[in-house]
Amino acid sequence: MAEIGSLERRKLEKLLGMGSGYVLDFSDRTYAEFFIDFRVDIDAPQFRTGGDSKAKRMRTFWDIAPSHTVGKVLDGLIAYGVENDHLGDSNPVLIDDCRKIAQRLLSDQPVTDLDALTAIADERDFEVVAEHVREAIEKNQPEGALDRLHTFVNKFIRITCEPHGITISRDKPLHSVFGEYVKALRESGHLESVMTDRILRSSISVLEAFNDVRNNKSLAHDNPILNYDESLLVFNHVASSIRFIKSLEARIKAKSLQQTTESTWNDSIPF
């Protein structure tokens, strides 16, 4: 549940005009549509346990949804209210206080580098699996998406390896492909420290163990799934590694482009 104190609740309720059961200017239809943009079905039974009005469903949402999700919705509501002038006579101090509440809740993200888990190729299936992975974390259910995270990592690593001349085949396991990738980085001088090299090499065995998790402790098969805390550890390790690799690949690409530009410029000099 979102950690919102009693004073913070009063401020939010005042800002959103919840005293009479409403929330801003929303009808039931537009209220549901607003929440759908944040992957929340506010009409679902779990949000009606405290009552059916929009304000009562909002209070129940605060009680049961993860902090990060509540923060995103509140941030969106404040932006909507300001843009459409629906915050009534709310003073700037109250608006600012409520924004700070939303930002505090937003900072409570169970996977620090979640934004790194995005598709790096214009492929529909890649984009869909990336969206499902992020959605699981936004719902605070990492154990339910380990199989999709494994699929995402497979796609990401194989696409990343192609420019390095690494042969990709369906029969080559993920950890073997990643091992060749680390070797290519090392031999090309893209790694500046021994420690980075060792961290990446240790990820080879981690990815091999991920195969076992996917096959025996995820919803890929009829298995007892991995517990929440260990699933969250897997997600954080993978997301952190993906973020680093994306940053490294961007640096490699920029360096290659600079070298090509300098070579072209030098070749154009007539003396």
Rank of each mutant, 00 (worst) to 15 (best):
T118Q: 07
E187R: 05
V238N: 11
K100C: 06
R29I: 10
S256H: 02
A184S: 14
V206P: 13
M18H: 07
V206Y: 15
R9Q: 15
L226V: 00
R214E: 09
A116M: 04
D115E: 14
I101T: 05
T261H: 07
I78Y: 11
V70G: 03
M195Q: 14
P173T: 00
R9T: 14
K155P: 02
D197V: 11
W265A: 15
V153D: 13
V153H: 10
F34Q: 11
G50Y: 10
T49W: 07
N215C: 02
S202G: 06
I199D: 14
R10I: 10
P173K: 00
A250P: 03
E33G: 00
L105T: 00
V238F: 14
T49S: 12
L248R: 12
T118G: 02
Y80L: 11
I95N: 05
L257K: 10
P45A: 12
I120W: 03
W62M: 03
R158D: 11
R158M: 08
D197C: 10
I225W: 04
R214A: 05
S27K: 09
R170N: 13
H221V: 03
R186G: 09
S205I: 09
N84M: 01
V40T: 15
N84R: 06
G19Y: 07
S203N: 13
V153L: 15
T264A: 10
Y228E: 09
I225R: 10
A184R: 08
E249S: 12
K11C: 06
A2N: 02
E123I: 12
L87H: 08
S241T: 13
G71V: 00
N236Q: 13
N154D: 14
V234I: 14
R104P: 02
L74C: 11
S203I: 00
T112R: 12
L87Q: 03
T30N: 14
E33A: 12
D25M: 04
A254C: 05
K54P: 13
P45V: 01
S205M: 13
D267R: 13
S218K: 02
I4Q: 07
S53C: 14
N223I: 02
L12R: 02
S205W: 13
V82A: 02
L146W: 06
L226C: 01
S263W: 04
N216D: 05
G88T: 01
I137Y: 09
K56W: 12
L74P: 02
V93C: 00
D89I: 00
R59K: 12
L12V: 15
I78P: 09
R201A: 09
V40I: 15
L149F: 04
A79C: 02
G51H: 10
D63V: 00
L77A: 07
L146S: 04
I242E: 07
K72S: 07
Q141A: 08
L15V: 11
I225P: 06
N215E: 05
A79S: 11
S20I: 00
E230Q: 04
E131H: 02
H237T: 14
S188Y: 04
D171L: 10
D229A: 09
V238A: 13
D108R: 00
N154L: 06
T261K: 05
A254I: 02
A119S: 15
A79I: 03
Y228H: 14
S240L: 07
F210D: 09
D37K: 14
D96K: 10
D25I: 01
K255D: 14
N154A: 04
A32W: 04
I36T: 15
A184I: 01
S169H: 06
S169Q: 08
I168V: 10
I64A: 05
A136E: 11
E187A: 11
